[in-house]
Design a protein around this nucleic acid. Structure first.
Lengths: 193, 193
DNA sequence: GAGGACGTTGGACTGAGAGTCTAAACCGAG
DNA sequence: CTCGGTTTAGACTCTCAGTCCAACGTCCTC
């Protein structure tokens, strides 16, 4: 895959719209060409096919998540507060890029077949969050966990699926409300104190 | 879609394998015919196309989840204990049907385009769990929540994505370990008590 | 046991669309 | 101006989804 010039890259977000709306299978290269304004021949000049366009969009969106998560992880405050910030950050990115996120999550099952994507989710989310969970043990703001890896994945899932449920049903995503529901669940649990 | 005879239905699980492994798009009807032993003409006799085969597999898997969840919800014990049982039930079904679950979650983004599936997840999971959350408030085993709907989705996501992460990376899914990690997260939260 | 209804199948066919290829324009740097 | 990479139109091939139909099997009914 050749380096994609930025003026071309920006146009591609229209393709995410198509993927999210109709699914990858139902989206024709001609449709992508029409929606982005990039001629078919040019698309094939840069990408081997739809899959690679999809992978490109994923990489972009995941970079965004990685950046926001990194900022949240490295911010001030207790580990618990920073974890809350991570949740908020993920919701923010998802709200900003609903189409890409719908397409991304729609293809999550393919993560296994696109090892690069799986590795990116790992590096962008699981690793920093897992480190954060360990920080929390150190600063006393989070409990000791026997399996921080699984917990990091569960937190990611809680945020992702609940946000996605709103996005795919076309309900407006009330970030603040969802953030507070998920944060309370994750930090305080469902059992009364 | 005609009623699918059971001797045909059982063979279709081989198709789930293909969908999970290569994705729907990359799976040819001929491949499905070869893998299931059902001739192409017969497949088209019963289903309008791949999508309908997929929907059929989903319906089947979701019925299983719905059954197991219903049993867990209606079991004895506090709402908190029953919620833990729901989590265990979902992990059990996912471990039993890894291929269908990978395909199902891989196509979750399409839920919006397959309203029937979205409705089934709602009826099979969100509604009973939400009712359970309300039971918990009544019996005092769970806290009062401002947004039980979002919390039900978040719990579903926590279980689904963490289990999927194991399934797509081909790591063995240690149900007991994951169940305990997720249950602790959901019931007790991450903040030390 | 003749005949009909329906399930089942092989195999040929059609059309859509993915992906390829070529040659021509374009454009910036030296 | 010229060389090299970029961009594009358009024509081409080939795979595959989906259709169609005739033939065959099986069971039921009269």
């Amino acid at each position: 895959m050749r380096t994609v010039p930025s003026h071309t890259a920006v146009k591609l977000s229209a393709a995410a719209e198509l993927f999210a709306e109709h699914g990858v299978e139902q989206t024709k290269m001609e449709d992508i060409a029409a929606a982005t304004g990039i001629p078919k021949a040019t698309l094939y000049y840069y990408f081997a096919g739809k899959e690679e366009i999809l992978a490109f969009l994923f990489r972009d969106a995941l970079n965004r998540v990685a950046d926001e998560v990194a900022i949240a992880v490295e911010s001030e405050g207790s580990a618990a507060a920073r974890l809350a910030e991570v949740i908020r950050a993920q919701l923010r990115v998802m709200a900003e890029q609903p189409a890409v996120c719908r397409a991304l999550v729609g293809e999550l099952g393919r993560a296994g077949r696109i090892p690069e994507i799986a590795a990116m989710i790992h590096a962008a989310y699981y690793e920093p969050v897992q480190a954060l969970l360990e920080d929390g043990v150190a600063d006393g703001s989070l409990r000791q966990l026997s399996d921080p890896g699984s917990v990091a994945m569960a937190v990611f899932g809680a945020v992702t699926i609940s946000a996605l449920s709103y996005l795919v049903t076309d309900q407006a995503l009330d970030q603040e409300r969802l953030a507070s529901a998920v944060t309370t669940l994750v930090l305080d649990g469902l059992r009364p104190r």
